[in-house]
């Protein structure tokens, strides 16, 4: 606690940076994964291709991906965009399957009933399929969010500032207080993300609470 009391301001700045680096990829990742997941469901042949590709992307170790991003994007190694891009890749990789499986979990008779009542194509997707896929989607997002918070901290090794700096600096200078603050802050941030996403998921699916 002693260390935190004198460094509160720094921690706050790093925390905001961390939130930014973890949350933006979550949003972009979801927006990219939705059409891809839908496509994987819509065309039989697309499913194995998309799922395999996202699985392969997910095998890439994070530090390696951070380091290779400048090669792909043409950015500088210290640019935070590298981290955002890498985290977006992981989020998409994880969520494509969640979206596909979530849409696949919509009962066939519900879908048929919606079609029979005159819903068509895109309208049915928005009004029926997507809402019913929310629980599976939420589960995927929660995993992605908790995972992102942990991975972002690794970016301190390539010099992009966020809560991971407390871990690296605390270790390098053997300051226990700083290291513990970093771990606890990451942990709390992960739990906060988890809690918020779960809350949104519940708010969107009032029928599951009955």
């Amino acid at each position: 606690m002693g260390w935190l009391s004198t460094h509160g301001g720094d921690v706050w700045t790093l925390l905001l940076q961390h939130v930014w680096l973890a949350a933006v990829p979550l949003v972009i990742g979801l927006l990219v994964a939705l059409p891809l997941g839908w496509a994987a469901r819509r065309w039989r042949a697309a499913y194995p291709i998309l799922v395999t590709t996202s699985g392969l992307l997910y095998t890439v170790p994070s530090l390696a991906l951070f380091i290779l991003m400048p090669l792909i994007l043409g950015t500088r190694i210290l640019d935070p965009i590298n981290v955002v891009a890498a985290m977006t890749v992981y989020t998409v990789a994880l969520l494509v399957r969640s979206v596909a499986d979530g849409l696949g979990a919509v009962p066939e008779d519900v879908r048929a009933a919606a079609t029979a009542m005159g819903y068509r194509g895109f309208r049915r997707l928005l009004a029926v399929d997507l809402p019913l896929a929310v629980p599976v989607l939420t589960a995927g997002l929660r995993v992605a969010a908790v995972s992102n918070v942990s991975i972002v901290s690794v970016a301190s090794l390539i010099g992009v500032a966020q809560l991971g700096n407390l871990l690296t600096d605390g270790y390098n200078r053997a300051i226990n207080g700083e290291l513990i603050t970093g771990i606890v802050a990451c942990l709390l941030l992960a739990l906060a993300f988890d809690w918020i996403i779960r809350g949104i998921g519940r708010a969107l699916t009032p029928w599951t609470r009955a």
């Binding site: 908790v146 995972s147 918070v149 942990s150 901290s153 690794v154 301190s156 090794l157 809560l163 991971g164 871990l167 690296t168 605390g170 270790y171 290291l179 513990i180 970093g182 771990i183 990451c186 942990l187 992960a190 739990l191 988890d194």
Partner: peptide, 11 residues
Amino acid sequence: RAVPTLGLLFA
């Protein structure tokens, strides 16, 4: 799993 891996290593 919410514990940051980097923090665990360093600790």
